[in-house]
C-alpha cells in the first residue's frame, strides 16, 4: 500500500489513518501499531523539518510478508539527510542538562528491528522493518 502525504505536520492524522487501515486490511496485530506510528511520525516530521528544499509530497509505502512489516518513507528531489547517523542520546543526564528534542531516533531504534537509509537519484528513503510475531 502506497500513499503520498503533504509535507506538513497536520498530515499526521491522515498517516495514522493509513497505517490503521493497512493493519485492519492485513489482519495484523494492533499491539505493534503504536510503535510503527511513532517511528513513522519521527521520520516524516524530520523530513518536513530538515529537507527544507523539498517540494513534493512524502511517500509512505507499507508491506507485510513472512511475518515482517516493512515501511519505506521516501522524499524525492532532496539533498541527502541520513537520520540513522544521529548519535545516541545520554538518557542519564539531569533534567537541567537534557536537551529538548533529539530523542526521536534514539527511540525509533528501540521501536523497530531494522532501520536503513538509502539515497539514490536525489531521493532519500528510510526503510524500517519490524517483526510482527
Amino acid at each position: 500500500m502506497l500513499k503520498k502525504f503533504p509535507r506538513e505536520f497536520s498530515a499526521l492524522s491522515e498517516i495514522f489513518d493509513f497505517t490503521e487501515e493497512f493493519f485492519a486490511c492485513r489482519g495484523l496485530d494492533r499491539t505493534h501499531l503504536q510503535r510503527i506510528n511513532f517511528a513513522i511520525e519521527e521520520l516524516f516530521t524530520n523530513m518536513v523539518k530538515y529537507n527544507k528544499q523539498g517540494q513534493h509530497p512524502i511517500r509512505i509505502a507499507l508491506d507485510a510478508k513472512d511475518g515482517t512489516l516493512e515501511v519505506r518513507i521516501s522524499d524525492v528531489d532532496v539533498e541527502p539527510f541520513d537520520p540513522t547517523a544521529s548519535p545516541e542520546v545520554d538518557i542519564g543526564q539531569s533534567v537541567e542538562d537534557r536537551p529538548i528534542g533529539k530523542l526521536g531516533l534514539h527511540l525509533i531504534r528501540r521501536m523497530v528491528d531494522g532501520i536503513e537509509y538509502q539515497y539514490e537519484n536525489r531521493t532519500s528513503t528510510v526503510i524500517l522493518t519490524k517483526k510482527l510475531e
Partner: peptide, 20 residues
C-alpha cells in the same frame, strides 16, 4: 492519552525544566 511522540515528550521536558 493513547499516544505520545517525541514532540509530546519535549512539551513535558520543557515544562519540567521551567518548574524545576
Amino acid at each position: 492519552l493513547d499516544y505520545i511522540s517525541s514532540a509530546g515528550l519535549a512539551v513535558l521536558l520543557r515544562t519540567q525544566k521551567q518548574l524545576m
